[in-house]
Simulated scan of single mutants.
Amino acid sequence: MGLFNKVLASIGIGAAKVDTKLHESHLLLGESVTGVVEVTGGNIEQQIDDIYLSLCATYTKEVDDRKVTKQAIIEKWKIAQSFKIRAGEKKEFPFSFSLPLDTPITVGKTRVWLHTGLDIKNAVDPTDEDYIRVQPNRMMNKVFRVVENLGFRLKEAECKEAAYHVRKRLPFVQEFEFVPISGEFRGKLDEVEIIFFPHALDECELLIQVDRRARGLAGLFAEALDLDETFIRITIREQHMHTLQTDLASLIRRYA
Rank of each mutant, 00 (worst) to 15 (best):
H199A: 11
M241R: 12
S82A: 13
G14V: 08
E24A: 13
S250W: 01
V36C: 06
I85A: 08
E156H: 06
E203I: 05
R254W: 07
D64C: 00
R167V: 07
E184H: 06
R212A: 14
G183Q: 12
L3T: 11
R212W: 02
G216S: 13
D211I: 15
D119P: 00
F93K: 08
L27R: 04
M241I: 15
K67P: 00
D211T: 13
H240V: 02
V147A: 03
I85L: 10
V63I: 14
D247F: 09
D211A: 05
F4W: 07
D65H: 09
V39D: 04
R186G: 03
E45P: 09
V112T: 08
T110K: 09
H115P: 00
R237Q: 15
K91E: 15
Y164C: 08
I234H: 02
L225C: 06
V39F: 08
M139S: 00
M139P: 00
E31R: 02
I252T: 06
I51G: 04
K142Y: 01
G42W: 03
F185V: 10
G12W: 04
R167L: 13
A87E: 15
E223N: 11
L189S: 06
G12L: 08
E38F: 12
I74H: 03
T110Y: 07
R233Y: 12
K17I: 02
G183H: 10
A15M: 02
Q135R: 05
L170I: 09
Q46K: 09
L8K: 12
R212V: 13
I85Y: 07
E184A: 11
P100R: 05
L150G: 07
N122C: 05
K142I: 07
V63T: 10
I181D: 14
F197G: 00
D65P: 00
K109T: 15
K142F: 00
R186Q: 14
G35S: 04
D50W: 08
L114R: 05
K142N: 05
G12P: 02
Q245V: 02
G35C: 04
S25H: 10
E223W: 03
K91S: 13
R111M: 14
R66T: 10
E175I: 14
T20N: 05
A200I: 04
I11Y: 12
H115W: 11
S10V: 11
I79P: 02
G42Y: 04
Q47T: 10
K90V: 15
E75A: 14
T20Y: 01
I132E: 02
M139Y: 00
R167G: 04
L217K: 09
V179D: 08
A16D: 01
D130W: 01
I120V: 14
F95V: 11
G14L: 08
R145M: 14
R111I: 11
L206Q: 00
K91F: 09
L8R: 11
I132Q: 02
D130S: 13
A57K: 01
A249Q: 14
I85D: 09
E238G: 04
T235Y: 03
Y52G: 13
R212D: 06
S25V: 12
E129H: 09
L207I: 07
V179F: 07
L55P: 01
V39G: 05
P171C: 12
D247W: 04
V179R: 11
F221I: 15
H165F: 14
A200G: 11
C204F: 00
Y59K: 01
L99R: 03
V210P: 06
L189F: 05
L55Q: 02
K160S: 03
I44C: 03
E148N: 09
